[in-house]
Amino acid sequence: MSWQPCPDPLPGDKKASDLIETVIVPRARDLGGFSVRRALPSGKKQMVGPFIFFDQMGPAEFVLGEGIDVRPHPHIGLATLTYLFDGSIVHRDSLGTELTIEPGAVNLMTAGKGIVHSERTGTEPRKTGDSFGPAQLLVFNPGDDITVRAKSDARFVIVGGEPMDGPRYIWWNFVSSSKERIEQAKEDWRQARFDTVPGESEFIPLPTR
């Protein structure tokens, strides 16, 4: 369910339009066999605080036997944080980590100079099917006091923090303060120089653009 600040402010409150710097409607992005709704980076905003990627899994409806299958893919220069409202997903990475992420838990993976991981629906959840709803990202003006009132049941996540110490270059899943480092990462993935994920034989090829 999408949400927004109630347009009728309390006495003395600012109007919602005065509090919101940017409204970002996530766009569908293919991760290789599965689409996510990506809010960051966008044409309106590259980062919010230290957050440079902001993806929502879904919306999607699964029939029995199907689920999310994000094949192994690489990252450099960032840390990924995965949080689920519903369902579960199995995380595997090139360090040999394998764990099931469930609602209420946080999975934090630091890529550093390079890591490869996959995210897939487990065996049991594929027996019931599942779905995810739409959302949007509101960027508020720094320093403002925010009051959110929903007219019906809603979920929302607040993220933020101090900005990075400088601009970052982004290409596919690679983030760096150096264009040369990103070019090296592209070539390393193209030439299969990254470590592999144990038990996985598939991978997402390097995009052509």
Rank of each mutant, 00 (worst) to 15 (best):
A135F: 13
N173V: 02
P134K: 14
T82Y: 05
A60L: 07
Q4T: 12
A28V: 14
M57C: 08
K179L: 13
N173W: 03
E183T: 06
V63R: 15
R190K: 15
N107S: 13
L31C: 11
D195Y: 09
G12L: 07
D145S: 13
V63P: 02
E180L: 08
I68G: 07
T100R: 08
E21K: 13
K44R: 15
E162H: 08
T100W: 00
W171E: 02
E200P: 04
R29L: 15
I158N: 11
W171K: 03
G160E: 04
D86C: 12
A154W: 02
H73I: 04
R149L: 11
E21Q: 15
F54D: 08
E66H: 09
D86K: 15
P5C: 07
T121M: 05
A60R: 09
R71Y: 10
F132L: 13
S201P: 00
G166Y: 07
A192Y: 10
R92T: 00
R29D: 11
G143Y: 01
D93Q: 01
T208D: 14
R190M: 09
T80Q: 06
D188V: 00
R27G: 12
D93H: 01
I204W: 04
E183C: 04
R37H: 14
K151M: 11
I115G: 00
D55L: 03
V139D: 01
N107I: 03
L84G: 08
K45V: 12
P205R: 01
Y83F: 14
P41A: 03
L84T: 05
F53D: 02
P59M: 05
F53T: 03
V70T: 09
G33D: 06
E21F: 08
S176Y: 07
G65T: 04
F62L: 00
A150I: 02
P50M: 02
I101C: 01
P26A: 06
P59N: 03
E102L: 13
V48A: 05
R126A: 13
Q136A: 10
A79K: 11
D144R: 14
T97K: 09
E98M: 11
I170S: 11
P50R: 02
S35H: 12
D145M: 09
A60W: 08
V25F: 10
E200Q: 10
K186G: 01
V139S: 02
W189V: 06
I182H: 00
P41C: 01
F51D: 02
Q56F: 12
